[in-house]
Amino acid sequence: MPGTEAVHNRIALLRAEQGVTRRELADALGVHYQTVGYLERGEYSPSLHLALRIAAFFGLPVEAVFSTEPFPRVSDLHRRSG
């Protein structure tokens, strides 16, 4: 979309890896569970403060969770190394 910048994230992947529900993440962050869904689908870009809190929750640097460029798919990474 012209004039808007997408923020891509790995929240859903990280939640799945760590066995965390949307509601559990939302409760830990102090946001509504639907906000987590909006973030995951790219319908909402988090504030810097919220992005930092999400990254801290997963124990990762913010750039491992959020990016202005799409993250490569795991299947694409596997093909490159194989």
Rank of each mutant, 00 (worst) to 15 (best):
N9E: 06
L60C: 08
P2L: 12
G42S: 02
G19R: 13
R73M: 10
A28I: 09
T68N: 13
H49Q: 10
Y33E: 11
G42C: 01
F71K: 06
H49I: 00
A26H: 06
P46C: 02
R15W: 05
E24A: 15
H78L: 15
G42A: 03
V62H: 02
P72I: 07
V31S: 03
G59R: 04
T21G: 12
L13T: 14
E40V: 02
P46F: 03
F57N: 05
V31Y: 01
L29S: 04
E24L: 10
H8K: 03
V74D: 12
V7D: 01
Y33D: 10
L48S: 12
V31R: 02
G30D: 04
Q18P: 05
L50T: 01
L25G: 04
Q34C: 05
V65G: 04
S45K: 05
G19H: 13
V20W: 07
A64V: 09
F66A: 04
P2F: 11
A28R: 14
H78F: 12
A12R: 14
S47A: 02
E43F: 07
L39R: 00
G19Q: 10
H49N: 08
H78Y: 13
L14E: 12
E43L: 08
A55M: 08
M1Y: 10
D27I: 09
E43C: 01
S75E: 14
P72S: 07
